[in-house]
Protein backbone atom coordinates (compact mmCIF):
# COMPACT_ATOMS: atom_id res chain seq x y z
CA UNK A 1 0.00 0.00 0.00
CA UNK A 2 1.34 3.39 -0.97
CA UNK A 3 1.36 6.15 1.61
CA UNK A 4 -0.42 8.42 -0.85
CA UNK A 5 -2.40 7.10 -3.76
CA UNK A 6 -4.24 9.31 -6.23
CA UNK A 7 -6.19 7.56 -8.95
CA UNK A 8 -8.01 9.21 -11.88
CA UNK A 9 -8.76 12.35 -9.91
CA UNK A 10 -11.04 14.93 -11.51
CA UNK A 11 -12.13 18.32 -10.23
CA UNK A 12 -13.70 21.22 -12.10
CA UNK A 13 -14.47 24.72 -10.93
CA UNK A 14 -17.20 25.83 -13.29
CA UNK A 15 -15.83 25.44 -16.82
CA UNK A 16 -12.22 25.12 -15.64
CA UNK A 17 -10.90 21.58 -15.38
CA UNK A 18 -8.55 22.19 -12.46
CA UNK A 19 -7.55 18.55 -12.10
CA UNK A 20 -8.04 16.35 -15.13
CA UNK A 21 -7.46 12.61 -14.67
CA UNK A 22 -4.46 12.79 -12.35
CA UNK A 23 -2.96 9.59 -10.94
CA UNK A 24 0.23 9.07 -8.97
CA UNK A 25 1.54 7.48 -5.80
CA UNK A 26 4.01 8.49 -3.12
CA UNK A 27 5.93 5.81 -1.25
CA UNK A 28 7.25 5.92 2.32
CA UNK A 29 10.84 7.01 2.65
CA UNK A 30 10.79 9.22 -0.42
CA UNK A 31 10.32 12.88 -1.19
CA UNK A 32 8.15 13.52 -4.21
CA UNK A 33 8.06 16.92 -5.81
CA UNK A 34 4.70 17.95 -7.24
CA UNK A 35 5.62 20.55 -9.80
CA UNK A 36 3.88 22.82 -12.20
CA UNK A 37 3.22 26.46 -12.97
CA UNK A 38 0.81 28.51 -10.89
CA UNK A 39 -2.74 27.48 -11.64
CA UNK A 40 -1.72 24.03 -12.88
CA UNK A 41 -3.92 22.23 -10.34
CA UNK A 42 -1.38 21.39 -7.63
CA UNK A 43 -3.23 22.99 -4.74
CA UNK A 44 -6.56 21.55 -5.85
CA UNK A 45 -5.07 18.05 -5.97
CA UNK A 46 -3.63 18.42 -2.48
CA UNK A 47 -6.86 19.85 -1.08
CA UNK A 48 -8.82 16.95 -2.59
CA UNK A 49 -6.35 14.59 -0.94
CA UNK A 50 -6.98 16.31 2.41
CA UNK A 51 -10.75 16.24 2.14
CA UNK A 52 -11.05 20.02 1.96
CA UNK A 53 -12.24 19.99 -1.63
CA UNK A 54 -14.69 17.37 -2.87
CA UNK A 55 -13.39 15.67 -6.01
CA UNK A 56 -15.76 15.21 -8.95
CA UNK A 57 -14.36 11.77 -9.61
CA UNK A 58 -11.55 9.38 -8.77
CA UNK A 59 -9.97 8.57 -5.45
CA UNK A 60 -7.35 10.19 -3.27
CA UNK A 61 -6.17 8.01 -0.40
CA UNK A 62 -3.75 8.44 2.47
CA UNK A 63 -2.56 5.17 4.04
CA UNK A 64 -5.32 3.47 2.09
CA UNK A 65 -8.13 5.63 3.43
CA UNK A 66 -9.95 8.76 2.44
CA UNK A 67 -8.78 11.60 4.68
CA UNK A 68 -12.27 12.18 6.10
CA UNK A 69 -12.35 8.56 7.25
CA UNK A 70 -9.20 8.82 9.36
CA UNK A 71 -9.96 8.62 13.08
CA UNK A 72 -6.85 10.52 14.13
CA UNK A 73 -5.83 12.45 11.02
CA UNK A 74 -3.11 14.56 12.65
CA UNK A 75 -1.21 11.43 13.73
CA UNK A 76 -1.27 10.06 10.19
CA UNK A 77 -0.89 13.13 7.98
CA UNK A 78 0.90 16.41 8.50
CA UNK A 79 -0.28 19.11 6.12
CA UNK A 80 1.05 22.56 5.34
CA UNK A 81 -1.23 24.68 3.20
CA UNK A 82 -1.26 28.44 2.83
CA UNK A 83 0.72 30.65 5.13
CA UNK A 84 -2.27 32.68 6.25
CA UNK A 85 -4.19 30.06 8.18
CA UNK A 86 -3.80 31.67 11.58
CA UNK A 87 -5.82 34.02 13.71
CA UNK A 88 -3.61 37.11 14.07
CA UNK A 89 -4.58 37.61 17.71
CA UNK A 90 -3.62 34.14 18.87
CA UNK A 91 -0.10 33.19 19.91
CA UNK A 92 1.90 30.55 18.10
CA UNK A 93 1.81 28.22 21.10
CA UNK A 94 -1.96 28.62 21.56
CA UNK A 95 -2.57 27.80 17.90
CA UNK A 96 -0.81 24.50 18.37
CA UNK A 97 -2.38 23.88 21.77
CA UNK A 98 -5.89 24.24 20.32
CA UNK A 99 -4.99 21.63 17.71
CA UNK A 100 -3.49 19.35 20.37
CA UNK A 101 -6.68 19.61 22.43
CA UNK A 102 -8.95 18.90 19.48
CA UNK A 103 -6.80 15.97 18.34
CA UNK A 104 -6.41 14.55 21.85
CA UNK A 105 -2.64 15.01 21.81
CA UNK A 106 -0.60 15.98 24.90
CA UNK A 107 -0.19 19.76 25.18
CA UNK A 108 3.62 19.58 25.34
CA UNK A 109 3.67 18.50 21.69
CA UNK A 110 3.07 22.17 20.91
CA UNK A 111 6.40 23.22 22.43
CA UNK A 112 8.21 20.25 20.88
CA UNK A 113 6.98 21.22 17.43
CA UNK A 114 7.86 24.90 17.95
CA UNK A 115 11.38 23.91 18.97
CA UNK A 116 11.72 21.69 15.89
CA UNK A 117 10.91 24.55 13.52
CA UNK A 118 12.95 27.11 15.44
CA UNK A 119 10.08 29.19 16.82
CA UNK A 120 10.54 28.41 20.53
CA UNK A 121 11.61 32.00 21.25
CA UNK A 122 8.41 33.52 19.89
CA UNK A 123 6.01 30.85 21.17
CA UNK A 124 3.97 33.35 23.17
CA UNK A 125 3.97 36.10 20.55
CA UNK A 126 0.78 36.82 18.67
CA UNK A 127 0.88 35.67 15.05
CA UNK A 128 0.00 39.19 13.85
CA UNK A 129 3.66 40.15 14.28
CA UNK A 130 5.01 37.16 12.37
CA UNK A 131 6.79 37.43 9.03
CA UNK A 132 5.72 35.24 6.15
CA UNK A 133 8.65 32.95 6.85
CA UNK A 134 7.70 32.60 10.53
CA UNK A 135 4.11 31.77 9.56
CA UNK A 136 5.43 29.15 7.18
CA UNK A 137 7.48 27.62 10.00
CA UNK A 138 4.43 27.70 12.27
CA UNK A 139 2.43 25.95 9.54
CA UNK A 140 5.12 23.30 9.45
CA UNK A 141 4.86 22.97 13.23
CA UNK A 142 1.13 22.22 12.92
CA UNK A 143 2.07 19.35 10.63
CA UNK A 144 4.52 17.96 13.19
CA UNK A 145 2.45 17.87 16.39
CA UNK A 146 0.84 14.51 15.58
CA UNK A 147 4.20 12.95 14.58
CA UNK A 148 2.75 11.61 11.34
CA UNK A 149 4.46 9.47 8.69
CA UNK A 150 2.93 11.24 5.73
CA UNK A 151 3.56 14.88 4.91
CA UNK A 152 1.68 16.95 2.36
CA UNK A 153 3.13 20.41 1.82
CA UNK A 154 1.83 23.04 -0.57
CA UNK A 155 4.54 25.51 -1.58
CA UNK A 156 6.23 25.36 1.83
CA UNK A 157 9.20 27.38 0.63
CA UNK A 158 7.10 30.47 -0.15
CA UNK A 159 8.24 33.32 2.01
CA UNK A 160 11.26 31.54 3.44
CA UNK A 161 14.60 33.27 3.14
CA UNK A 162 17.48 31.38 1.48
CA UNK A 163 18.64 30.04 4.85
CA UNK A 164 15.09 28.92 5.59
CA UNK A 165 14.85 27.12 2.26
CA UNK A 166 18.16 25.42 2.94
CA UNK A 167 16.88 24.33 6.33
CA UNK A 168 13.58 23.11 4.85
CA UNK A 169 15.40 20.98 2.27
CA UNK A 170 17.43 19.28 4.97
CA UNK A 171 14.38 18.84 7.16
CA UNK A 172 12.29 17.20 4.42
CA UNK A 173 15.15 14.87 3.49
CA UNK A 174 15.57 13.98 7.17
CA UNK A 175 11.85 13.20 7.51
CA UNK A 176 11.84 10.93 4.46
CA UNK A 177 15.25 9.30 4.45
CA UNK A 178 15.84 8.93 8.19
CA UNK A 179 12.33 8.83 9.66
CA UNK A 180 10.88 6.89 6.75
CA UNK A 181 8.10 9.37 6.08
CA UNK A 182 6.39 9.86 2.74
CA UNK A 183 6.72 13.50 1.72
CA UNK A 184 4.75 15.16 -1.06
CA UNK A 185 5.87 18.73 -1.64
CA UNK A 186 4.50 21.06 -4.29
CA UNK A 187 6.34 23.93 -5.88
CA UNK A 188 6.22 26.07 -8.96
CA UNK A 189 9.97 26.57 -8.86
CA UNK A 190 11.90 23.50 -9.88
CA UNK A 191 15.21 24.69 -8.50
CA UNK A 192 13.63 24.99 -5.06
CA UNK A 193 13.05 21.27 -4.83
CA UNK A 194 15.57 19.81 -7.25
CA UNK A 195 18.08 19.18 -4.47
CA UNK A 196 15.48 17.62 -2.20
CA UNK A 197 13.21 15.35 -4.16
CA UNK A 198 13.70 11.76 -5.23
CA UNK A 199 10.76 11.68 -7.60
CA UNK A 200 8.89 14.27 -9.55
CA UNK A 201 5.31 14.50 -10.69
CA UNK A 202 4.76 17.34 -13.13
CA UNK A 203 1.34 18.79 -13.82
CA UNK A 204 0.26 21.50 -16.24
CA UNK A 205 -3.22 22.62 -17.17
CA UNK A 206 -4.70 20.01 -14.81
CA UNK A 207 -3.01 17.06 -16.53
CA UNK A 208 0.05 15.04 -15.57
CA UNK A 209 2.85 15.55 -18.04
CA UNK A 210 5.66 13.59 -16.39
CA UNK A 211 6.11 11.20 -13.53
CA UNK A 212 9.27 9.43 -12.46
CA UNK A 213 12.64 9.74 -10.81
CA UNK A 214 14.23 13.18 -10.91
CA UNK A 215 17.28 11.72 -12.68
CA UNK A 216 15.12 10.48 -15.58
CA UNK A 217 14.10 14.01 -16.31
CA UNK A 218 17.59 14.96 -17.49
CA UNK A 219 18.69 11.54 -18.76
CA UNK A 220 16.46 11.40 -21.80
CA UNK A 221 17.56 13.06 -24.96
CA UNK A 222 20.81 12.84 -26.90
CA UNK A 223 23.40 14.93 -25.12
CA UNK A 224 26.67 15.96 -26.59
CA UNK A 225 30.19 16.70 -25.48
CA UNK A 226 31.24 20.29 -25.92
CA UNK A 227 34.93 20.73 -26.89
CA UNK A 228 36.97 23.85 -27.41
CA UNK A 229 40.02 23.18 -29.53
CA UNK A 230 42.52 25.36 -31.38
CA UNK A 231 42.10 23.32 -34.59
CA UNK A 232 38.39 22.66 -34.41
CA UNK A 233 38.04 21.92 -38.11
CA UNK A 234 40.67 19.21 -37.98
CA UNK A 235 39.12 17.74 -34.82
CA UNK A 236 35.68 17.70 -36.42
CA UNK A 237 36.98 15.72 -39.37
CA UNK A 238 38.72 13.22 -37.04
CA UNK A 239 35.56 12.80 -35.00
CA UNK A 240 33.50 12.09 -38.11
CA UNK A 241 36.05 9.44 -39.18
CA UNK A 242 35.64 7.69 -35.80
CA UNK A 243 31.86 7.52 -36.21
CA UNK A 244 30.87 10.57 -34.21
CA UNK A 245 28.97 13.61 -35.40
CA UNK A 246 30.49 17.01 -34.92
CA UNK A 247 28.69 20.29 -35.06
CA UNK A 248 30.72 23.46 -35.25
CA UNK A 249 29.36 26.08 -32.91
CA UNK A 250 31.91 28.71 -33.85
CA UNK A 251 34.69 30.32 -31.85
CA UNK A 252 36.60 27.03 -31.85
CA UNK A 253 33.83 25.13 -30.11
CA UNK A 254 32.42 21.79 -31.30
CA UNK A 255 29.47 19.76 -30.07
CA UNK A 256 30.23 16.06 -30.52
CA UNK A 257 27.49 13.48 -30.46
CA UNK A 258 27.78 9.71 -30.55
CA UNK A 259 31.08 9.60 -28.68
CA UNK A 260 31.81 9.99 -25.00
CA UNK A 261 34.35 12.35 -23.46
CA UNK A 262 37.09 9.75 -23.24
CA UNK A 263 36.78 8.90 -26.95
CA UNK A 264 36.87 12.57 -27.91
CA UNK A 265 39.91 13.11 -25.70
CA UNK A 266 41.73 10.13 -27.27
CA UNK A 267 41.03 11.45 -30.80
CA UNK A 268 42.40 14.83 -29.83
CA UNK A 269 45.52 13.19 -28.37
CA UNK A 270 46.07 11.04 -31.47
CA UNK A 271 45.67 14.08 -33.72
CA UNK A 272 47.86 16.20 -31.42
CA UNK A 273 45.16 18.87 -31.14
CA UNK A 274 45.22 21.13 -28.13
CA UNK A 275 41.91 20.96 -26.19
CA UNK A 276 41.31 23.83 -23.78
CA UNK A 277 37.83 22.87 -22.58
CA UNK A 278 35.66 19.78 -22.60
CA UNK A 279 32.21 19.48 -20.98
CA UNK A 280 29.57 16.74 -20.92
CA UNK A 281 26.35 18.51 -21.82
CA UNK A 282 23.23 17.72 -19.77
CA UNK A 283 19.68 18.84 -20.31
CA UNK A 284 18.98 21.91 -18.35
CA UNK A 285 16.38 20.72 -15.82
CA UNK A 286 14.58 24.02 -15.88
CA UNK A 287 14.45 23.90 -19.68
CA UNK A 288 13.05 20.37 -19.69
CA UNK A 289 10.51 21.43 -17.12
CA UNK A 290 9.45 24.44 -19.14
CA UNK A 291 9.15 22.34 -22.29
CA UNK A 292 7.01 19.77 -20.49
CA UNK A 293 4.67 22.24 -18.86
CA UNK A 294 4.61 24.62 -21.80
CA UNK A 295 3.47 22.04 -24.35
CA UNK A 296 0.68 20.86 -22.08
CA UNK A 297 -0.51 24.42 -21.65
CA UNK A 298 -0.73 24.82 -25.40
CA UNK A 299 -2.38 21.43 -25.81
CA UNK A 300 -5.34 22.24 -23.63
CA UNK A 301 -7.12 24.16 -26.32
CA UNK A 302 -10.68 25.22 -25.65
CA UNK A 303 -10.13 25.62 -21.92
CA UNK A 304 -9.51 28.96 -20.30
CA UNK A 305 -5.78 29.09 -20.02
CA UNK A 306 -4.29 30.67 -16.91
CA UNK A 307 -1.68 33.28 -17.59
CA UNK A 308 1.55 31.67 -16.56
CA UNK A 309 4.29 33.86 -15.32
CA UNK A 310 7.47 31.99 -14.89
CA UNK A 311 9.59 33.49 -12.18
CA UNK A 312 13.34 33.35 -12.33
CA UNK A 313 14.65 30.50 -10.21
CA UNK A 314 15.76 32.63 -7.27
CA UNK A 315 13.39 35.54 -7.44
CA UNK A 316 10.84 34.05 -5.02
CA UNK A 317 13.42 33.01 -2.48
CA UNK A 318 13.78 36.10 -0.41
CA UNK A 319 10.90 38.44 -1.12
CA UNK A 320 7.42 38.51 0.33
CA UNK A 321 5.81 36.55 -2.46
Amino acid sequence: MSAIEIRNLFKSFGPVKAVNDVSFTVESGTVTGYLGPNGAGKTTTLRCLLGLVAADGGTALVNGHRYAELDHPLTEVGAVLEATNFHPGRSARNHLRVMCTAAGLPADRADDALAQVGLADVANKRVAGFSLGMRQRLALATALIGRPKVFILDEPANGLDPAGIQWLRGFLRHLAHEKGAAVLVSSHVLSEVEQTVDNVVIIAGGRLVHQGALADLTANGDHGVRVRADEDEKLAAAVEREGGRAERLGDGVLRVRGLDREAVGRIALDERILVSEMVQERSDLQKVFLELTGSAQNGSAGEPRPQVEWPQPRSTSGGDA
Binding site: G51, L52, E69, P73, L81, E82, N85, F86, M99, A103
Partner: peptide, 14 residues
Amino acid sequence: RYQTITGTFLTTPR
Protein backbone atom coordinates in the same frame (compact mmCIF):
# COMPACT_ATOMS: atom_id res chain seq x y z
CA ARG B 1 -12.17 35.08 7.75
CA TYR B 2 -8.74 33.99 8.96
CA GLN B 3 -8.87 30.67 7.10
CA THR B 4 -8.29 28.77 10.33
CA ILE B 5 -11.18 26.60 9.11
CA THR B 6 -8.59 24.72 7.04
CA GLY B 7 -6.71 23.63 10.16
CA THR B 8 -9.95 22.95 12.01
CA PHE B 9 -11.25 20.64 9.29
CA LEU B 10 -7.84 18.99 8.91
CA THR B 11 -7.93 18.18 12.62
CA THR B 12 -11.61 17.18 12.54
CA PRO B 13 -12.55 16.18 8.99
CA ARG B 14 -16.13 15.35 9.98
